[in-house]
C-alpha cells in the first residue's frame, strides 16, 4: 500500500517521471475536455436544448452564482479558474468508485500544486484589480505591525488548503484499504460512498476557500480581511 500515487511510477528518466498521479490527472483532463467538447459541439441558443447541455448550464451557472454570492464583483471572470478547481477535485473524488482508480487529489503534490495556483492567482487578480502597491499595501493593514502576520497567514492558508484536501482524500483511501483487508466487502462499499460525500464536500470547500481568497484580494483594500472565512 502506497501512501500517495506519486510513488507509483510508470516511467522515469532522471528526475522526469510519469507516475499514477499524472496519469490519472490526464485521464480526468481528457474526460472533462472531451466531454465538454462533445456536449458543447452543437449548442442550442434556443429554448430547446439537450439534457447534457442543461446539465452543463446548471453547473456553470451554479458556479457563477456561488462566486457571486461570496462577494466577487465580476464572477464571470473567475468562472474558468474556480470552476475548474471544483470540477477537477469533484471528478477526482467521484472516480474513487472505479476499482483501481487512485485520485490525483490523494497526492500532496497535486494538492500543493492546486494550492500554489490559488496562492499565485489571488495576488495576481488582486494586483490586476488594485495595482501592485495597492495590493501590497493590504498586507500592512490595519497597521504595519500586521505585515508579518499577514504574510504568515497567506502562506499558512495555502499550506492548509493543500494539506486539508490531501489529508481527507488520502485518509479515505487508507481507511478503505485497511477495511478491505479486515472486513467483508460491504464495509468498504459503505466507506466508498461516504468517501464520495467527503470528496464532494472537500471539492466545495477547496473551491469556496479559493473564491474567498480571490474575493479578498480583489475587494477594496479596507475590506480585505472581512470575507476571510475559514473552515
Amino acid at each position: 500500500m502506497q501512501l500517495t500515487p506519486d510513488n507509483q511510477i510508470f516511467w522515469q528518466y532522471g528526475f522526469v517521471k510519469i507516475n499514477a498521479t499524472m496519469i490519472f490527472t490526464w485521464l480526468l483532463m481528457a474526460i472533462l475536455a472531451i466531454g465538454a467538447r462533445l456536449i458543447t459541439f452543437r449548442l442550442s441558443t434556443g429554448l430547446r436544448r439537450s439534457r447534457w447541455q442543461n446539465v452543463l448550464e446548471i453547473i456553470v451557472l451554479t458556479v457563477e452564482k456561488q462566486i457571486a454570492e461570496i462577494g466577487v464583483v465580476e464572477p464571470r471572470r473567475f468562472v474558468g479558474f474556480l470552476g475548474t478547481l471544483f470540477l477537477f477535485v469533484a471528478l477526482a473524488s467521484l472516480g474513487t468508485v472505479v476499482p483501481g482508480y487512485r485520485p490525483p487529489t490523494g497526492s500532496l503534490s497535486t494538492t500543493a500544486a492546486l494550492a500554489l495556483c490559488v496562492f499565485v492567482a489571488a495576488p495576481a487578480y488582486g494586483i490586476r484589480k488594485n495595482g501592485l502597491l495597492g495590493y501590497l499595501r493590504t498586507y500592512m493593514e490595519p497597521s504595519v505591525l500586521m505585515l508579518p502576520f499577514n504574510i504568515i497567514g497567506e502562506i499558512s492558508r495555502t499550506l492548509a488548503l493543500a494539506v486539508r484536501l490531501f489529508g481527507n482524500m488520502m485518509s479515505g483511501e487508507m481507511i478503505i484499504a485497511i477495511l478491505l483487508t479486515i472486513t467483508p466487502y460491504i464495509f468498504p462499499i459503505v466507506m466508498t460512498l461516504f468517501g464520495l460525500l467527503t470528496g464532494m464536500v472537500q471539492a466545495y470547500i477547496f473551491s469556496v476557500l479559493a473564491t474567498v481568497y480571490i474575493a479578498a484580494a480583489t475587494s477594496n483594500r479596507n475590506s480585505r480581511h472581512q470575507p476571510a472565512a475559514q473552515q
Partner: peptide, 29 residues
C-alpha cells in the same frame, strides 16, 4: 510526500485544464 516535479507537472496540467475547459466548456456555455 511532495515530489516537486509532480507538483510542477500538476500545475501545468491544471493550467492546461483551465484553458481547455475555458475553451470548450465555459465560454460556449
Amino acid at each position: 510526500l511532495i515530489d516537486w516535479f509532480t507538483v510542477t507537472a500538476q500545475i501545468v496540467n491544471f493550467l492546461v485544464l483551465v484553458w481547455l475547459l475555458r475553451r470548450f466548456l465555459y465560454r460556449p456555455i
